[in-house]
Design a protein around this nucleic acid. Structure first.
Length: 230
DNA sequence: GCGACAG
DNA sequence: ATCTTGTCGC
């Protein structure tokens, strides 16, 4: 069972959530990877509109072949509503439950959302990185904060996202002539490495494989097409 | 005060 | 995020 550090309670109000982010942000470390990763995990949650039940899942793949080597899913309940800037308080609790079911401890974890590309520099990828105490980064489909110049249309090109003069992430083209994805470091990794890993997880789609497979997993779970054991 | 606003 | 069919473009 993969474990994590329970740094704080998740049963908080929006105001307390912001205070926690302000308190935790100083612990985030943006730096090169300590070790070359061999495995990477993708995370996602799904739910039915107007319902409180959430389906969370994590898929672990080998970085060299992109082969799926483990999956874990859980059916839980969201303790927090979706509020821009506070996504982690809605998604991380159930993702931690799925994390506990893993037998493999992924070397790096990709999140569907942002890391430092956040108003307080602590998006879901950074926040989860502190709990998991391992490299994490975000790869979102849209912007929360920050401005950027449109990168060239070919796969691999990117341009920095800036917020109040700081580079907080990158708009990265993962496929020719399709909208970019937004990559930002979460914890224990740097932007350049997060970009390289995103490109390495290419499966021919705009969305990188870890996130894409996690998305498929949780949707299948929600539709009752599979159990949550595997 | 007004508009923006990850999933 | 979710609700949903067809349709425009490479």
């Amino acid at each position: 069972m993969a474990n994590y550090q329970p740094l704080h309670d998740w049963n908080v109000s929006p105001t307390e959530a912001v205070a926690l982010q302000q308190q935790l942000r100083s612990q985030i470390r943006i730096e090169p990877l300590a070790e070359p990763p061999k495995t990477i995990a993708g995370c996602d949650i799904s739910f039915n509109k107007f319902e409180e039940t959430v389906y969370a899942g994590i898929v672990v793949l080998r970085l060299d072949t992109l082969e799926t080597i483990e999956e874990a899913g859980v059916v839980s309940t969201a303790p927090f509503p979706y509020i821009p800037g506070l996504l982690s308080f809605r998604e991380i609790p159930s993702l931690l439950q799925a994390w506990q079911k893993l037998t493999i401890e992924p070397d790096v974890v990709m999140f569907d959302g942002h890391g430092t590309a956040h108003p307080r520099r602590i998006g879901i990828a950074s926040h989860a990185g502190l709990f998991l105490n391992r490299p994490t980064f975000g790869c979102g489909k849209s912007v929360l904060v920050g401005k950027y110049d449109e990168p060239d249309l070919e796969r691999g090109s990117w341009s920095p996202m800036k917020h109040y003069g700081e580079v907080i992430g990158a708009a990265l083209r993962t496929k020719n002539k399709v909208n970019p994805v937004y990559v930002s470091p979460g914890h224990l990794i740097d932007l350049e490495t997060a970009i390289a890993l995103t490109l390495q997880c290419n499966g021919g789609y705009r969305i990188p494989e870890p996130t894409r497979r996690a998305h498929n997993l949780v949707n299948a779970l929600r539709r009752g097409e599979r159990d949550q054991s595997t």
